[in-house]
Write a protein that binds this DNA or RNA. Structure first.
Lengths: 224, 224
DNA sequence: AAAATAGATTAACATTTGCTCACCTTGTAT
DNA sequence: ATACAAGGTGAGCAAATGTTAATCTATTTT
C-alpha cells in the first residue's frame, strides 16, 4: 500500500485529497507548508508527494528541490488556475505531473496511480483493474465496458459512474457524494444530471440494467 | 467525550441540536452570533463547531476565518436551502461539512460523528453498519432490511424508523422525539403519521412484527 | 475560421412512489 | 361503561425519479 504525503496550506484541500486517497486505499500523511514537508520527508518514507506550489514559508518548487537532495520521491504539483508557472522548470526539477486547481479528485488519483505505476517503486501490489459482476465487466486499464463479452461504447461520465458504483457495490450512494467523488469538489451544478447519465447508462447495460438500483430519497446503488 | 459549540441565532435550533447532541453523549456550549462564537473559542477548547452561515453581527464565514487564526477546530456549516453559498470558499476556509436546512438531527449527528472520527486520526471504533436482532437485519450501507435472510423492500421512512428504533433498542421513544430525530426539527405535521408508518413497517417484518412494541401514551419501542 | 459532431448539462414534462391525513374501528385502562 | 389511545384503511397530493428534448461546450472536421 503506497504512502502519500499531501502538502497544501489549505486544510480543506488536504482533507478532500486525503479522503479520496483513503478511499483508493492509499495511506496518507500531511504537511502545511514546504518546511514541514521537507522535515517530514527526512524522517519518513513516502512513495509519492502531492504538493501545492503556492505556500507560505517555503514554496513547492523550493521544497521539491530540497527534498530531492536526499530522496528520489515522485512529486505531483498542484497549481492554481491562471497561476503562471514555468512548466519546464518544473520538469527540470523532476516533477512528475501537474494538476491545475480546481481539479477533480478522481483525476488527481488517476495521475497518482499512473505515476506510481511508472515509478513502480519495487513490487507494488497489483491494483484491481477489472470490475466484474455476472456478464458485466469494466476494464479500468482500457476504460472499456463489456456486456456478455460484447464491448459497449460508453461516454466518459457513463464509464466513470459505472466504475464508481461498482467499486462501491452494495452501498447506497447519495447524489452529493457521487458529485464530490466523480465530478470533484468544485462542481456546482444540478445533481439531477446524475439521473440523466444513469438513464443513458442503464440503456447500454441490457439485461444488467437493473443492477443499478434506485435508492429513493438517497441516490443509487450497484447490486451485485 | 467531545465538546461541541453550537452557533445559531435561532434559540429553537440551538435547543434542538443541543438536545440531540446530549442524547448522543456530547457536551455542548452555545453562541448566538459570530462575535460570541469567536469570543467563546478564545477561552474554551471545543472539539467541533456547528455554525449557521447567516447570523447577525458576524456571519459564519467571517467567524470561521477569525477562529481559524488561533485554533484549528473542525467546523460544520448550516445553510438555509436555496441560500447561495460558495462551496469552494468553504473549502478554502477548511470547513469540514455543509448541512442544508432543514436537516434531520440524525443526519447532522452522523456528520458530527464522521468529522470527529476523521479528525481523531484513525484509531476510532469502527462504525456499526449492521443492526441485528434475531433473524431481523438492517444493513446501513446498502440501506436494506432482511427478514430471515430474505430481503424486504422498505420505503425511506420505514427504513429510517426501523434503523432508529433498533439503534435505540429497549428505549421507549416518544412520537415527538421520533419526529425530531427522523423528520427534523422543522416538521410540524401530525404525529399520528408515525403510526401509519409503524403499521406498514410491521406488515413487512413478519414474525418479528412484535419486536416493535407500542408504549401506550408515549410512542414505540424496539424490544430485543 | 466555420461547420459539424459528440457529450455534458439543464430544463421541462411525465410518471411513479409513498407520505400524510382524515375517518373509522378496535383495544385498553380506569 | 366510558373515554381515550392506537390500529387500520384509503384517497389526495407532494416529492422523487424517469424520460425526452433543448442548450451549452468542447473537440474535430472541412
Amino acid at each position: 500500500m503506497a504512502k502519500i504525503l499531501i502538502v497544501d496550506d489549505e486544510a480543506g484541500i488536504r482533507e478532500a485529497i486525503r479522503e479520496y486517497a483513503h478511499f483508493n486505499k492509499y495511506e496518507t500523511d500531511e504537511a502545511e507548508d514546504g518546511m514541514q514537508a521537507v522535515a517530514k520527508c527526512l524522517n519518513n518514507d513516502y512513495d509519492l508527494i502531492i504538493m501545492d506550489i503556492m505556500m507560505p514559508k517555503l514554496d513547492g518548487y523550493s521544497a521539491c528541490k530540497e527534498i530531492r537532495k536526499n530522496k528520489d520521491i515522485p512529486v505531483i504539483m498542484l497549481s492554481a488556475r491562471g497561476e503562471e508557472y514555468d512548466k519546464l522548470f518544473g520538469f527540470e526539477l523532476g516533477i512528475d505531473d501537474y494538476v491545475v486547481k480546481p481539479f477533480s479528485l478522481k483525476e488527481l488519483m488517476a495521475r497518482v496511480a499512473a505515476v506510481l505505476a511508472r515509478k513502480s517503486h519495487g513490487a507494488e501490489a497489483a491494483k484491481q483493474t477489472v470490475l466484474k459482476s455476472g456478464g458485466l465487466e469494466v476494464n479500468m486499464d482500457s476504460r472499456t465496458v463489456t456486456v456478455d463479452g460484447i464491448k459497449v461504447d460508453c461516454t466518459l461520465k457513463e464509464y466513470e459512474i459505472l466504475a464508481y458504483l461498482m467499486q462501491n457495490k452494495n452501498i447506497a450512494l447519495s447524489r452529493d457524494r457521487m458529485l464530490q467523488d466523480i465530478w470533484g469538489y468544485d462542481f456546482f451544478g444540478d445533481d439531477r444530471t446524475i439521473d440523466t447519465h444513469i438513464k443513458n447508462l442503464r440503456g447500454r447495460l441490457g439485461e444488467y440494467r437493473d443492477k443499478i438500483t434506485t435508492v429513493r430519497g438517497i441516490g443509487y446503488k450497484f447490486e451485485d
